[in-house]
Write a protein that binds this DNA or RNA. Structure first.
Lengths: 337, 337
DNA sequence: TGTCCATGATCAAACGATTGATCACGAGGG
DNA sequence: CCCTCGTGATCAATCGTTTGATCATGGACA
């Protein structure tokens, strides 16, 4: 719309420039292999700016039979700040490729999910990113198969769907190495109790790091903890009993709880105990005292990589997972032994 | 696309049902005032499901001249979890009205913003929501005026643009009242130092509540604090000197800092000091020990209300603001005097 | 003078729907 | 037997673009 409220069409531009719509189209799109005189070109360009013309992409999509839409269905923007990062990553990467993201959040509601998928298909999306805020295995909704799709932060065994997930194993290794690098050799691991790729993966990485450093594997040092603030708080005594000098917490919230418990016992971080978290949940990790050293879940990258896989810019075989690095975020909660 | 990869068009449905496209269109849209025999109807319906036909909304939009798109430009999904809630609110409300949200985040980059606006206009959005993650005054980007628009969590004085903002004054009053209700009469207010609608509004609301309760206005009780964790941490001594029994913190991060400082001094919340925050930043407020009582910034509602205003469902005069309530979120950090 | 060709621009058919106007047909009334 | 009318369905134009085919013009060349 212009100021007068009406939509300016290509025909109006053509009339003002005294040429045909075809010519206008050719000029605007710089169609190669088409000859338009220099002065005609500039006359058209002038008309375009004079009228404030904007092409109607919908019409363009229609005739070209291609759309620049990519769908993103997220299961919960609500409950977590993480989803926002996935969306942002996907959105910016899509943008870079001249695509537009159609976001739908379905709070784990199957009906809403079907609706969202139907809508996306109606909008002729060229592909769909199906994301989950927590790294997990899941079954795909019917309908998803009707478009090209890539899973983000989740995977669907046996479906042949390609997925982009965080590299939990490498992440667990990284966290542990951050502690080992400072000379710690008795490291407790507050791992979550609920089975998940995160639980298994981080544990494996943790062990790999210990083995690599020639440290003993002591199962007693791996203690169960609810993956929340309470878990860390409650596990504090156990950690102290074990005589650990450093703790790898399954996530930042657990670390937060541990902080509180230690403070109440008059212990200092990192002087008395070094702590490393996981997730890099900004508001927590960045604002604890001392700021929490942690390992980041690469949500932004997951979203962005999802788009790249969808657009074929990054190769992933059917049924395979692309594992994205979890980078270390050193802050102030680790001291040398 | 169906399994065979091709897009099913209305013509194919028509052929299979042995009728014209017109008839198919009429049946699918249940066009009132049009007569189609019962058996033809069901033949068409059957063909639709057989072929897995989905209407091409782009074509529909084109001929009808209306689009179901609404644009949302957000200045930073990146730096804050709040933006996510605005997006979610807008998205769900748009959805309820059968609209689709086109999200663009422009990290305060003017060029990106222009791009985003251009893109949205090309997609024939029927309106644009322009949002900021922090409640503030700002100047509108050129181009925004080309479509109907509503500002969310910000306002632009002198432009006549309608805005939806949180009711800071009422919020400040609410927070203070939560403390007064428990018998507190000497209440410190750790207010931010940076000028903003939040600073002025919450202070005004704070004062209104005191006056209403017949309490004295003591300017000494309003102390400056950086609106971060550090601000709260550093202000702890001052609060204790003042002999306040309760503290209203400008935001949850400030409260978090105050928590730390008090814990270090061996003081307990809420027994020794009652605390109320502002923002209801989930990860913080919900996970502090004790959980922080606070006042919520209604980000979800802001987004949703923005859509309603845009769609004319909620009346707001040009240049006026719609103020959205900031509801109290009682948790465990306030004790009776 | 007639032919050929490069140049510059237009024609017209699509894309996939919607929609007001129109048509074919048989029944009922006069 | 003709006219009218209700019923059921189709015709054809339209939305704003793109795009392969086509046309008009004038200069170079034989």
């Amino acid at each position: 719309m212009t100021e007068n409220g009406r939509t300016v069409t290509m025909r109006e531009v053509a009339e003002r420039a005294g040429v045909s719509v075809t010519t206008v189209s050719h000029v605007i799109n710089d169609k190669p292999g088409v000859r338009i005189g220099a002065k005609t070109r500039s006359r058209v360009r002038q008309a375009v700016v004079d009228l404030g013309y904007r092409p109607n992409i919908l019409a363009k999509n229609l005739v070209q039979g291609t759309s620049r839409f990519i769908g993103l269905v997220a299961d919960s923007i609500a409950t977590t700040p993480f989803a926002g990062q996935i969306i942002r990553g996907a959105q910016e990467e899509a943008w870079r490729h001249g695509r537009v993201l159609l976001v739908a959040n379905t709070e784990a509601d199957a009906a809403a999910e079907q609706n969202a998928l139907a809508m996306m298909l109606e909008y002729q999306v060229s592909g769909i990113l199906y994301s989950s805020w927590t790294h997990q295995a899941l079954t795909l909704p019917p309908g998803l198969a009707e478009a090209e799709h890539v899973l983000v932060n989740c995977y669907a065994p046996g479906t042949g769907a390609r997925a982009v997930v965080p590299d939990e194993v490498a992440g667990g290794r990284t966290a542990t190495e951050m502690l080992i690098a400072q000379g710690h050799d008795r490291i407790a691991f507050l791992n979550t109790t609920s089975p998940s790729p995160a639980r298994e993966g981080r544990l494996r990485g943790h062990r790999e790091a210990l083995v690599e450093a020639g440290l003993p594997l002591d199962d007693a040092l791996v203690v169960d903890a609810l993956p929340e603030q309470e878990g860390g708080y409650d596990a504090a005594d156990r950690v102290l009993e074990l005589g650990a000098t450093a703790v790898f917490c399954h996530n930042d919230r657990v670390a937060m709880g541990l902080y509180d418990a230690l403070r109440e016992r008059g212990l200092r971080i990192p002087e008395d105990l070094s702590v490393v978290g996981f997730d890099n949940q900004e508001v927590i990790a960045g604002h604890l005292r001392p700021a929490l050293s942690t390992v980041a879940l690469p949500h932004y990258e997951l979203g962005a990589a999802g788009i790249r896989v969808l657009l074929g810019e990054e190769e992933v075989a059917p049924g395979q997972q692309l594992r994205v690095d979890c980078p270390p975020i050193p802050r102030c909660s680790i001291a040398p032994r």
